[in-house]
C-alpha cells in the first residue's frame, strides 16, 4: 500500500517503532572523515527522519548492521562457554537498491553456502529493510550494468519530499500504523543510466589470470583494504581468540572483518603468505566478484555501488578494471 503523510507524523511513527526496533540509516558523522573538517557518511542509529542522509551515497555500506565489524561470538572461562546475547530489539535498515541486492549476496554466503551461520541468521531474521530511492546516479555507480538499480523485495520504500513523506509499504506493521494515512500511489525512484558502465565477459579464460594487466596494481595498490571494507558484498572475516589481560582464565572469541587486500590474509602455518603480490590480490578480488561467485551461485557478486572506486586513496578503479578484463577477453577470443 502507498501512503502520504507529513514529516511530523513520520517522526512520531519512528518514536513508536523505537520501542521495539533499532533504526539504522546512513548518517552524516560531522568531522568523522579521514581529513580535517571532513565528514563521513556511514551507518548509525537514528531516531528522526532528519538524521538520515538521503542526498549522498554512504561511504560505508549497511553490511555492518548484519555483520558487525568486530563481533563477540562467545565467552569462555575454564570449562564453561557462553554465547553472546543477540540484540534485545529488532532492526530496521534504510538502504538503496544496490545494497538491497547486496543483501542477497550476504544471505547466499551466510545462509546458503554450506551450514547456516547462526550469528548472521539471528540478526538477519530480525531485520527489516526500507528502500531509499535514487533520483540520480552518484559518481562511480554502475548499478544499471549490474541490474541492481531497481528493487521490489523491500519491507517499505520511503521518499522524503519538501513537505511530505511518501511510503510504499509491504509490511503489515506499517500498514496498521498508517491505517489512517492518506492513500497514495508511490513508485520508488530508480536510475536508468549511470555515468559508468561495465561489461562483464561471460567466461574468463585462464590466460587472463597470468596477464600483465595485474602488474599495474602491484605497483599502485597500498593494500589498505578500503575497497573491501566499504564493499556491501565482501563477507570475509577472521577469528580472534583472546584472554582478558587482567584475568587469563577468561576470554572471548571474536570474529572480525578480514580483507583479501590486507597483509596477513593468506598467512599460513610456517609463516608463508601465498598471495603477497598486490596485483595478485586485486586479481583474486576481481575474479571473485565477476566470475568465481557466479560459477557457484548464478549471479554476479558485485552490485555496482561503486564505493570501492569512491574510497580508493590510490585512485584504483574497480569498474575500469572490469572493462580492462573484458577488453582482454575480447582480444583473446578474436
Amino acid at each position: 500500500m502507498g501512503y502520504q503523510i507529513n514529516k511530523t507524523k513520520m517522526n512520531t511513527l519512528f518514536t513508536d517503532l523505537l520501542e521495539n526496533y533499532t533504526i539504522y540509516a546512513p548518517k552524516r558523522f560531522v568531522g568523522g572523515g579521514t581529513f580535517a573538517d571532513t565528514d563521513c557518511i556511514r551507518y548509525g542509529e537514528i531516531s528522526t527522519l532528519e538524521e538520515i542522509e538521503f542526498s549522498e551515497k554512504s561511504d560505508y555500506s549497511f553490511k555492518e548492521v548484519l555483520l558487525p565489524i568486530s563481533e563477540t561470538l562467545f565467552y569462555f572461562t575454564e570449562a564453561v562457554m557462553k554465547e553472546s546475547d543477540p540484540p534485545l530489539k529488532e532492526a530496521i535498515v534504510f538502504l538503496r537498491s544496490c545494497d538491497l541486492h547486496s543483501l542477497n549476496r550476504l544471505d547466499t554466503i551466510y545462509l546458503k553456502n554450506g551450514p547456516v551461520d547462526p550469528y548472521y541468521k539471528r540478526l538477519r531474521d530480525h531485520t527489516h529493510f526500507i528502500l531509499m530511492g535514487c533520483e540520480n546516479t552518484f559518481e562511480n555507480c554502475f548499478c544499471v550494468s549490474m541490474g541492481t538499480n531497481q528493487s521490489t523485495n523491500y519491507d517499505a520504500y520511503i521518499k522524503v519530499t519538501a513537505e511530505e513523506v511518501l511510503i510504499d509499504s509491504h509490511w503489515n506493521l506499517l500498514d496498521q500504523a498508517l491505517a489512517n494515512a492518506q492513500p497514495f500511489t508511490v513508485v520508488p525512484d530508480s536510475v536508468s543510466i549511470n555515468n559508468i558502465s561495465v561489461e562483464i565477459p561471460e567466461s574468463i579464460p585462464q590466460s587472463v589470470f597470468d596477464s600483465t594487466l595485474w602488474d599495474d596494481y602491484t605497483a599502485r595498490c597500498i593494500a589498505c583494504g578500503r575497497c573491501t571494507f566499504v564493499c556491501p558484498t565482501c563477507t570475509c572475516f577472521t577469528m580472534q581468540d583472546l584472554f582478558y589481560s587482567d584475568n587469563g582464565k577468561a576470554g572471548e572469541r571474536r570474529r572480525v572483518w578480514a580483507s583479501c587486500q590486507v597483509d596477513g590474509y593468506t598467512d599460513v602455518a610456517g609463516g608463508h603468505a601465498f598471495r603477497e603480490n598486490k596485483g595478485q590480490r586485486m586479481r583474486f578480488k576481481v575474479m571473485h566478484k565477476i566470475s568465481d561467485y557466479k560459477k557457484r551461485f548464478d549471479n554476479q557478486m558485485c552490485t555496482g555501488c561503486g564505493r570501492c572506486d569512491d574510497i580508493c586513496p590510490e585512485y584504483i578503479s574497480f569498474s575500469n578494471c572490469i572493462n580492462k578484463v573484458n577488453a582482454l577477453v575480447k582480444e583473446e577470443n578474436r
Binding site: 565489524i69 568486530s70 589498505c224 580472534q240 589481560s245 571474536r254 572480525v256 580483507s259 597483509d263
Partner: peptide, 25 residues
C-alpha cells in the same frame, strides 16, 4: 570498528613516533 589491520601501527611507527601497540588484537 577496528579490524586489527595495523595500518595505524605501521604508519605511526614509520612516519611518526611509534606510539601505538597491539594488545588482544
Amino acid at each position: 570498528r577496528c579490524v586489527n589491520c595495523q595500518a595505524c601501527v605501521k604508519a605511526c611507527k614509520q612516519k611518526s613516533v611509534d606510539a601505538l601497540s597491539v594488545e588482544n588484537y
